[in-house]
Design a protein around this nucleic acid. Sequence first.
DNA 1: AACTACAACTTGTATATACAAGATAATTTT
DNA 2: AAAATTATCTTGTATATACAAGTTGTAGTT
Lengths: 238, 238
Amino acid sequence: MNRKETTPLYRKITDDLKTAIEKGSYSKGDLLPSENDLCKTYNTTRATIRQALGALMISGHITRKHGKGSIVAEPKNGLGILSLKGFTAGIGNKPLSTVILQKPSKQAWSEDFYYALEEDELAAGCIFFVRLRYLDQKPLLYEETHITNLNLPHFTSRNLENRSLFRILEENYQVKVKEGEQKIWAINGNEPVSKLLNVTSGHPLVHMKRRLQTNIRNLNIYSSLYCNTEEYFLQDYF
Amino acid sequence: MNRKETTPLYRKITDDLKTAIEKGSYSKGDLLPSENDLCKTYNTTRATIRQALGALMISGHITRKHGKGSIVAEPKNGLGILSLKGFTAGIGNKPLSTVILQKPSKQAWSEDFYYALEEDELAAGCIFFVRLRYLDQKPLLYEETHITNLNLPHFTSRNLENRSLFRILEENYQVKVKEGEQKIWAINGNEPVSKLLNVTSGHPLVHMKRRLQTNIRNLNIYSSLYCNTEEYFLQDYF
DNA sequence: AACTACAACTTGTATATACAAGATAATTTT
DNA sequence: AAAATTATCTTGTATATACAAGTTGTAGTT
């Protein structure tokens, strides 16, 4: 728990409501307590409550309607973040299993890294690891990840297999993804990757190079990934 | 000018500052006038100013630093919107030329449309058109677009060849894209599309289905596109 | 010259209050 | 019974004020 010594009240309210929504205490379409009700609950004023609700709106947890209330939105897995969804309805909730092909290790950035780096970032070095992600025992997604090694103590010893990378970063280091960019290609899998994904060398794959910026300056997440979209597709929200 | 009868003050301030930034009155790293200065300029209070600055922060026009000020951010072309960037450096600014394969026409939604539609949207019908986009006389991107036909008078007679669809919607109908989702596949171009894109039937293509939501409720933009990423790549920001 | 303390800026958080305007259900009128 | 009105919810916008806390330059001290 490395959080700031004093957490602002509006932040606590946002976190409380977010937790409640993600825990399932509300379902899609439900109304949150009205602003005035929340004022009483937290013994504060509407300005503070609205600041908290505003954050929930930005994060996509609620929408708001004048005269009606704050409406809980459809849960989006990985808002703004690329996620993998099943081709057929109902398969979307199957969990991806993950195999670490190369354990996280501290490295210097490669000379010809695929994104331009800031000086401070270059100096900090990076943590690098490679994962292969499966759905239904079938390999779907090969991903090489670089994270700027900035205030991430003990990261290399963490278990990345079962938990989401983003969740680990948020819960343990207060690092949140804020924005990003991605480049997209369709390629024929004649690279060594196609063997890992268990496809023939002529099989089309989605190749993406992404940079995700976080709330910490100069701490970025870079990933280069290859995905077999024969049965499933890649999906993202923005 | 179909805007609401009364524009809130904070909205006017946001628009003013946004225009100034986009016009180039400020450059990257510059500080906006302080909140108190803006209070005097607009004869209002900090709460209103902060609401305006908050919107600029969300839209990515500024960042803010405690004790310092509001810092103008790097301009981003097409925030959150898919754009096409050249493979090699410096080619990114070449304009895409556009050929309309099928002129915009009012239609009913197809029974098996690829996104689930709201009832009101279904009732409104849609405007449909097909475009083929070229870079350097080479066809790169085939795109079928459906727009909900909601308060878009004379849209079908507009010239979509030279101007951006998003710009037309924003300038003429005050329609702005707010968020969206996209699904991504890599396919082998054996469809009729590959002939239009001038590739062999085994050539890998990026296939995307996108839904862009706008500030107008129930007015969405749907597009299904195929892109040859041999020389260029697709890029988007979120 | 280097350090310290302070003043004067900046944004961050919060309270208290007021009225406008959309949504909805109860009430009254027709 | 149907329509219009009203009351009472809700969120949206706005003013006025206060103090906390980060940043920066300046004046004073060592």
